[in-house]
Design a protein around this nucleic acid. Structure first.
Lengths: 342, 342
DNA sequence: TAGTATATTGTTAACGTTAACATTAAAATA
DNA sequence: TATTTTAATGTTAACGTTAACAATATACTA
């Protein structure tokens, strides 16, 4: 393989001069620079980033760990991260854990071994243990969307799930619903917990007793379409089923729609449905679901800016920063007053 | 930072013994292995992949370059790639070029510099030049979805765009449409060219003259929602507008829907619409668009298997392999006979 | 038990860069 | 012109790991 040495020999200069040309250092005479550039071109030399990083102890790379690439919320976050990183000359390594704690641990290990300069992380497990290698290596970390229990001293960028869930629930209550089911992913995930909290807060405010059997939260479940489908069926199979369902995220809401339809019920006539997070490609074409929208792209941007600031002057800022973004209620056609008052 | 040296010292062995333990080599006595493991744990040692790769000249990493993370077609491909790579102990670096030739060149350069073992690539530019660094470094390459002009000796995994477009167009013709508009991304992209070819083939088969003004292909345009919107407006602004529109991909079809609606027209009453590629999250909830579906996940799987085979025995297979996957026509509600016969 | 085979450990030289310093060439000053 | 300053280039050692071989300890054989 062609190395810096070969280029140096061909150009008749020292390897250090070649290095300077590659890195655009100023103190190289124009004609030698050209000689070197010509040699690089002729030999087809491509610098080795690993050798470089080994010496300078920087990789100009950040790891982005998301829990589901097929969820438009996260791909939008990813776009925000990428667009921001690129302007600061960082490359993004995107890792998809698929809501799988094993993949989560594996990817963190890979990122740590590859000495990324920083990591933006959405937790799939809700545990801090998988992040150990990052702490050990003191690799700057920004959590996005989901917090992690027992990990208080780290930057977080997230939407206000409590508020969002409160708004959604309140909207349903104001329409006249009293029995509102809620389906969320694993209770180890902060957004699941927060959304339940917002839900309960709204119920309390309207003096509606909380019926725990309407809260479908399952340790085995994820924020996925399949689980949304399953949990919705469970809700509707109850003796006294809810008149409205709160989908814990966009994918669960889709699963809920499928389950509701399969039972021959219609939305919103027979049952109202709301969702946390929108699906833009759906709603644009078919403005149906009443949702709470989060500024996903902005979350990506902010998280990246925070992270890069941490990377660039590591020790300076000691205190942890938590950025809470406001969600927005978008009322569409999936909600209506309940059929029968109760 | 903690290195293999520190571990060796702490465990009272040579660095080579530590290396053997890390890499799970067999010839280490059980008690020394435990000593080493204990030292690793206590010191919080995380191996440095870059130093390792520098020596062994392998990174166990493959680069996946897609042209749009927010397009569900590509995220599904990505899932296929990732799931397959993981079973073969490869890590995936996902790069999103956003249909931007500059990003494309940049990412290829980054991957080459990082010495990934192989690359799976969807072209945004349609040019082979951006891939130069990969050829120079003889990094195995598999193209996915889109071919590249003048690059004949490389593996390709793609859907049969000619056939898919033919099926879609034929379906419209059989409904009675004679003036069918088609909107596609840049003509430098193979799928755009192929889809036009399939379209023309169907028209010819039914002896319908080809009206070039119905073919909206724009060098500035991409396969994006915005361009779908714009080109549809252009079509509908014609003196003799089409009675049906063929959206070159899923995002363009969404743009078309928005444009058509904005003009106060309804689908399929006033105008029929078909799309190449589905949007699952949309169609599941709202089974509206008539589409041709491609096996995106399978494409990812096959591409990865092909690539990894190339990586593992580079020279053996000389001939290029082209995998052509059959698309599937799914007729839904966006197509109907035209209003007025012509 | 001595001698040989085998299993376990260690030593040294790479891998391809850059930082830090050393040297040389060129330019500026007196 | 001689001297000082500055610009351009070169040398060497490190970065953290593994391959290849070397050395030692242990087990096996006769």
């Amino acid at each position: 393989m062609v190395t810096i040495k070969d280029v140096a020999k061909k150009a008749g200069v020292s390897i250090m001069t070649v290095s300077r040309v590659i890195n655009g250092k100023s103190n190289v005479r124009e004609d030698t620079r050209e000689k070197v550039l010509k040699a690089i071109e002729e030999l087809g030399y491509v610098p080795n980033s690993m050798a470089r990083s080994l010496v300078i102890k920087k990789t100009a790379t950040i790891g982005l760990v998301i829990s589901d690439v097929t969820n438009p919320f996260f791909t939008t976050v990813a776009r925000g991260v990428e667009d921001t990183a690129i302007t600061k000359h960082f490359t993004v390594i995107l890792c998809n854990t698929d809501e799988n704690p094993e993949k989560e641990s594996m990817y963190v290990e890979v990122l740590a071994r590859n000495r990324v300069d920083g990591v933006i992380f959405t937790s799939a497990s809700g545990k801090k243990n998988p992040l150990k290698s990052l702490f050990i290596k003191k690799i700057p970390l920004v959590l996005i969307d989901r917090t992690i229990e027992g990990l208080e001293d780290v930057d977080v960028v997230r939407g206000d799930s409590v508020l969002g869930a409160y708004l959604l629930t309140k909207h349903l209550i104001e329409l006249g619903h009293r029995r509102i089911g809620i389906i969320v992913g694993s209770k180890t995930i902060s957004t699941a917990v927060d959304r339940i909290e917002g839900y309960k807060r709204a119920l309390k405010e309207f003096d509606i007793p909380i019926d725990e059997s309407l809260i479908k939260i399952n340790d085995k479940s994820k924020f996925s379409k399949e689980d949304g489908y399953r949990l919705t069926k469970e809700l509707l199979d109850m003796e006294n089923p809810p008149t409205a369902i709160f989908g814990g995220n966009n994918l669960m809401a889709v699963g809920a729609i499928l389950a509701i339809r399969e039972l021959g019920l219609s939305i919103p006539e027979d049952i109202s449905l709301v969702s946390f997070d929108d699906i833009e490609s759906l709603s644009e074409v078919y403005p149906f679901l009443t949702v709470v929208k989060q500024p996903a792209y902005t979350m990506g941007v902010i998280a990246t800016e925070l992270l890069i600031r941490r990377i660039e002057r590591k020790d300076r800022i000691k205190e942890k920063r938590e950025i809470l973004l406001k969600p927005e209620l978008v009322i569409r056609k999936s909600t209506a007053p309940p059929k029968i008052k109760n």
